[in-house]
């Protein structure tokens, strides 16, 4: 009788310790979970702040923290998205030296094509704008814009007085003399040949056939396509009009 009492106590004590530690651990575990679960997401840029806010809008349980210096209206979320899209190598169109987004400027802000591409109505050439034209607006914007790498690149080009080597998208062979001003005079709008540029973050050639581009690559700006439009609109189909 006397020999089993200490073993029973030992067993009870062990059990008690186990339960207690288990409870303690459990409580501790609950506490830890709460600390891990309660750490907020911190934005490290204005764009990231916009992204986090958007995520939070979708998932209100998300904890986010926006430091005040990143809680800015500029650059806007649209600007951030466009900037990102213009840098995306996986979408149509080459990545340009500056990720300029027509969708943002011409689409969202409605800047007229001829504001930048001036002279198109008078000259045979399209008129890629001078760096000065970009700086005309961008020199006036608040410094928070410079968060976008594209804007910083633009300002570097301007500081160095170096021109931006854009990659040409719309190119006609050298033996074609295409006159922009005549087409503008005739009332052809830019989108007819260049596509819906105002919806493009990254300018690319738009195929004009939609039902089988995945078997045969199609490109716009082929002679047959030009002739087709000329035929439909009663414009000259004489060879010498464009080839001399």
């Amino acid at each position: 009788m006397r020999s089993t009492r200490p073993r029973r106590r030992l067993l009870l004590a062990t059990l008690g310790v186990a339960v207690a530690s288990g409870i303690a651990l459990g409580v501790a575990g609950l506490w830890g979970e709460g600390a891990v679960a309660a750490e907020p997401l911190v934005a490290t840029s204005v764009c990231e702040a916009h992204a986090l806010k958007a995520r939070k809008a979708e998932d209100p349980s998300l904890e986010i923290e926006i430091p005040p210096n990143f809680d800015m209206p500029w650059p806007t979320r649209a600007a951030c998205l466009s900037h990102e899209a213009a840098l995306d190598p996986n979408t149509p169109g080459p990545v340009q030296p500056i990720p300029f987004s027509h969708k943002h400027h011409a689409g969202l802000y409605g800047v007229d094509c001829q504001y930048c591409h001036s002279g198109t109505d008078r000259s045979p050439a399209a008129g890629v704008p001078a760096v000065e034209t970009c700086m005309g607006c961008h020199s006036l914007f608040p410094p928070s814009y410079d968060e976008l790498s594209g804007i910083r690149t633009l300002k570097e080009y301007w500081e160095r007085k170096q021109s931006i080597p854009w990659i040409q998208i719309h190119r006609l062979p050298e033996y074609v003399q295409f006159r922009h001003n005549r087409h503008l005079e005739a009332g052809v709008d830019c989108q007819a040949c260049h596509g819906a540029v105002q919806d493009m973050d990254k300018v690319h050639l738009v195929p004009d056939t939609h039902w089988w581009p995945w078997l045969l690559p199609t490109q716009k700006l082929e002679m047959g396509w030009c002739i087709n439009c000329h035929r439909q609109n009663g414009a000259s189909q004489d060879c010498l009009t464009c080839h001399y």
Binding site: S163, P165, I167
Partner: peptide, 11 residues
């Protein structure tokens, strides 16, 4: 091959 468009800096 890639052709470039070189605008003016100040036109």
């Amino acid at each position: 091959h890639v052709e470039k468009l070189i605008p003016y800096v100040v036109q």
